[in-house]
Design a protein around this nucleic acid. Structure first.
Lengths: 196, 196
DNA sequence: CGGGGCATGTAAGGGGTTACATGATTTT
DNA sequence: AAAATCATGTAACCCCTTACATGCCCCG
């Protein structure tokens, strides 16, 4: 249940409500770990019951209530425990590779269209990762600023570098996949160039 | 439900029993799509009911029964339909990147140990992918031989190239991840070299 | 005759997806 | 006054994981 640790990691920066976490996991965090709203609320209830986070009810307007959750000492300890532990890699389950494996069973033009659609999608993702990487490198997101605020300034560069490095991986892996898919198109033998 | 299409793709090479498919998805195919035995048998029953595959009961010895499943015309058509369709990329959910993102919260030595364990695991996987790639490139697995057998010899090179290309991706992505994790260790600032 | 491989099932539980549902508050 | 946004829930369903369960066949 990694989502739990993603939530703890986010709340380490500052307290948030379920709504804010939902926004976050459907927007920014989406690029490393996605979670829909229907997963967030039950998880917060469960984590609060376990004492990993503490919820404080706030009143907006006259009646509307919202709960702001902050990480507890116990939550921070549990996060640190998880972080220090190596975890087995999940099983490989890549639908796109599976599809490519059998692409010789359909006409080359159709196979090429599938590969091109994939390239377009990965290009989009890469752009968004690159944009976020730039914002992180400049320490220009609200969350990173609040996070750095309570850390030793001597460590700021190291923390920012580590986070941008994660996005570097996402960007580089997208590039690898794009170039790989383009070579796959050549192998399919549609392009006259490779037919020589 | 990609497992269904993985099964169809395998059965296109030759008919197999549930047991053989289980072996296959826990060994060779494991490197692209894993599936445990408990998923295979119910799926085969379901697919046979839908007419995508046809099961033929065989008798081994006096009483032991086993069912050999072959792909039907309808199954082949469904596989081709799926292959020609572009599929949306799944949401990103990478527990290791998540862990790395927060690795500044634990002592550098512990963080380094986590990264090194990861590198070791990916190295193992890369070796096995490379071994399988070599076997594929030489058309030296039983399945690829049976698959090629019923295809136009003019297409053999293209089919083998496409399959080895898939394993090239797995190998290259492992290399990327290893190098990335090693740079992450440098960023953690444990090694005196980077501290200058 | 015992152990390992062949062969097929099922059951419980976790996590994720999609969709439905409700109501208050703020903005236009 | 309507529309957008804030805010929180729930329910059904699918896929996957782990584990338990059963029995036959073949080889040594």
């Amino acid at each position: 249940m990694s989502l739990q640790y993603a939530v703890l990691g986010v709340l380490e920066a500052r307290p948030m409500t379920g709504y804010e976490l939902t926004q976050f996991f459907e927007s920014t965090a989406r690029w490393v770990w996605t979670a829909p709203q229907s997963q967030i609320y039950p998880l917060l209830t469960k984590m609060a019951a376990e004492g990993l986070i503490a919820g404080e009810e706030q009143v907006r307007g006259s009646r509307l209530k919202r709960t702001s959750y902050s990480i507890t000492d116990s939550g921070l300890a549990e996060l640190r425990r998880w972080l220090a532990e190596p975890h087995a890699e999940p099983n490989v389950r890549d639908a796109f590779l599976l599809q490519t494996l059998f692409l010789d069973m359909i006409p080359p033009e159709e196979a090429e269209a599938v590969l091109r659609a994939h390239v377009a999608e990965i290009r989009d993702r890469r752009e968004q990762w690159a944009a976020h990487r730039a914002r992180l490198a400049a320490a220009d997101t609200p969350l990173i600023q609040e996070r750095l605020h309570r850390r030793d300034p001597a460590d700021h560069a190291r923390i920012v570098n580590l986070k941008t490095h994660v996005f570097d991986y996402l960007i580089d892996s997208a590039t690898l996949r794009i170039e790989w898919a383009e070579r796959a198109i050549a192998i399919m033998g549609v392009s006259p160039a490779v037919r020589h």
